[in-house]
Simulated scan of single mutants.
Amino acid sequence: MHRFYGLAARLRQSFGERVQKIPLDFGFTCPNRDGHLSREGCIFCSPQGSGSGLHKLSMSIPDQWSHWQEKLSKLYTAKLYLAYLQSYSNTYCSREELKCALDQLNGLPGLAGLCIGTRPDCLDNEKLALIKNLGLKETWLDLGLQSSNNATLERINRGHTAEQFAEAVQMAHGHGVDVCAHLIAGLPGESKADFLESVRFLNELPIAGIKFHNLFVGRGTPLKKLYDAGEFTPIGKDEYIEALVEAISILRTDIVIHRLKADAVPGELVAPEWVRQKRIVLNEIEQAMKKKEIWQGCARPDAPDEPPLWYGPSGSLPATSRGALPGALNPFGKRV
């Protein structure tokens, strides 16, 4: 039984074969780091902005692509790839600069789609139209929310509000660009109830995907200062799994789950140690869902009697259900 709608299933449905992501570093920065909003960044963000750092090595985009393609080809049988613009905020620029960056993707061997990591305050209609007009079969906007609680967003120095995030999602949806929202469990001052409320907030927006993250302490981050001072305790493994499984149970059935836990790059992690145990944690998540008979959306009032067929790679989500708007009918004739 497939208990949730994962990205691997979605990509198999789109392309009929395995697809891998290749991270690309274009050298963009972030308004939360260049002084426009702040120079500290979000309290959890590493100095590298979650990127590879290859741009600082003067490596061109084609060379970065070849570098990762060679590495991935030894691990997987994939021949198709999604370009993942991962480092910092990849639409924090003019339309012309964004077009110049995206033009560098032309001709990359095996390019099948695109994922663009950015912030809700770095988008406009012109940039979204440019992204949509690339005409790729899969185009995702990785958009950080982290929490729907504005007090939390201020506490973690996000530099935007939940309302700004919602406006950016609606704008992207209007252009036909799929949004993958990022959400973090274990943020300072937040409880499981706050985390679940953020899931409900996202359910009411036309998002098409979600990434779940557990907050960990990384080197060089403002969060490490709080941790060293004894002012922050990371979320425990069991606590995270409990919150995640409950979050999945209330998540809309059409939303693609891109990630179930956060991972630290080598040398970055300070705490907690369980973050290193990726395979163990994923297995425990699976076992917890089986034990509690949980599957994505099962606790929703509009839940079907069993997991939908599209949770598996051979299924197919009805086109009218992707990123369903609040109040729209879902595939089961019920209100979202």
Rank of each mutant, 00 (worst) to 15 (best):
N214I: 03
F212C: 10
E231Q: 14
G220A: 06
N214Q: 14
I184R: 00
L215T: 10
F201L: 05
N214M: 01
D228L: 12
I207V: 15
E204N: 15
A166F: 08
E197V: 01
F195C: 09
R200A: 15
L223F: 11
Q170M: 14
V217R: 01
V199A: 06
L223I: 08
A185D: 10
P188E: 09
I241L: 08
G218M: 06
H175E: 13
F232N: 05
A172D: 00
L196P: 11
V217I: 11
G230S: 03
E242R: 13
K192D: 13
A181N: 01
F201Y: 15
A208C: 13
G209W: 03
K224P: 02
A208F: 00
K211G: 08
A185Y: 02
H213M: 02
T221E: 11
E197G: 10
S198W: 02
E204S: 14
V217K: 02
K211D: 10
S191W: 03
F195I: 10
S198Q: 05
N203T: 13
F232M: 09
G209T: 05
F165H: 10
K237I: 01
P234H: 08
A162I: 07
N203E: 08
A229H: 05
F195S: 11
P222M: 14
P222D: 11
A162N: 06
L223P: 09
A193S: 14
H213N: 12
E204H: 13
H175D: 01
F201D: 08
V169S: 04
A229E: 14
G174Y: 00
G230M: 06
Y227T: 12
D178W: 06
I241P: 07
E239I: 03
K237Q: 15
Y240K: 06
G236H: 12
P188G: 08
E163Y: 06
E190G: 06
D228V: 04
S191Y: 02
I235M: 15
L215F: 07
P206D: 12
A208G: 15
V217W: 04
A172V: 00
L205C: 09
F195V: 09
R219Q: 15
P222E: 12
L205K: 03
F195Q: 11
L202Y: 11
V217A: 05
M171E: 10
V179G: 04
L202F: 11
D178T: 12
D194R: 04
A172K: 00
A166Y: 09
E197C: 08
F216D: 13
D194S: 15
D194V: 05
G230Q: 05
P222R: 10
P234I: 05
A193N: 13
E242I: 03
F232H: 14
F232L: 07
A168V: 07
S191H: 12
C180L: 10
K224G: 01
E204I: 00
K237F: 00
F201I: 07
E231W: 02
I184K: 00
E167D: 14
D178I: 04
T221P: 13
L202Q: 13
A229M: 03
L226Q: 15
A193F: 02
A168I: 02
E204W: 00
H182E: 07
F195L: 09
P222N: 12
